[in-house]
Amino acid sequence: MLEFIWQEALKFYSIIKFLLPAVPTTLKITVVSFLLAILLGTFICILRLSVINFISKIALWYANVIRGIPLLVLIFFIYFGLGKFLHLAQYPAAILAIGICYSAYLGEIFRAGIQAIPKEQFDAGRALGMKNFHIMYYIIIPQAIRIILPPLINEFIACLKDSSLVSVIGLRDLTRAGREYYSREFVVFETWAMVALIYLVLTYLFSKLGLWLEKKYKKEKRER
């Protein structure tokens, strides 16, 4: 009996030992593509808020089109489809696909956050003689961040999980490592259980970090 437990523990240990080196890849892809998504999303948000109807429409269409395509298809399209002309390596293709996909969601989240700030706050800034840029920077965005932060953390966690899709184009992330291990050692249940556990731990840690950020931000501003 004791030997059996020992055997099992060893098995799990060797699985985890095999999987852990792939975690940095998963994190790298998640963080870099999410940063790209924030950048693109900000741009989309600015277009969406344009007073020129046509520009706003373009941004809305972008969001609708991207949101209507499964991420897996987007990854295939960018790596294999566009790869015909561009020859993107796996990393840039994966980051581009996830970044574009999430930019559509983030753009809408940013827009909703900014539009949630009362119009009177703009009026107050303008009446004081502030330029639009300064009103945005000092008055609107700091208030909008409070609203944006919780859904942003949600999206980050979803992005972390979705990053598992990049394993299909051969990037050796956590999911890919799991596949390699079970096809070598034939321990299906244990391997996938461990992969799931590692994802769970990661998302748990990030959601904790998110809650801490939210709290910190609120406390600093002493708002109600």
């Binding site: 009026d123 107050a124 009446a127 004081l128 003689g129 330029k131 208030q143 409070r146």
Partner: peptide, 20 residues
Amino acid sequence: VVEIRKKIGFVFQQFNLFPH
């Protein structure tokens, strides 16, 4: 308009202070 506003103070019914 931005220049002229600098000479004009405006007080709103709803105060419109910056809450943050």
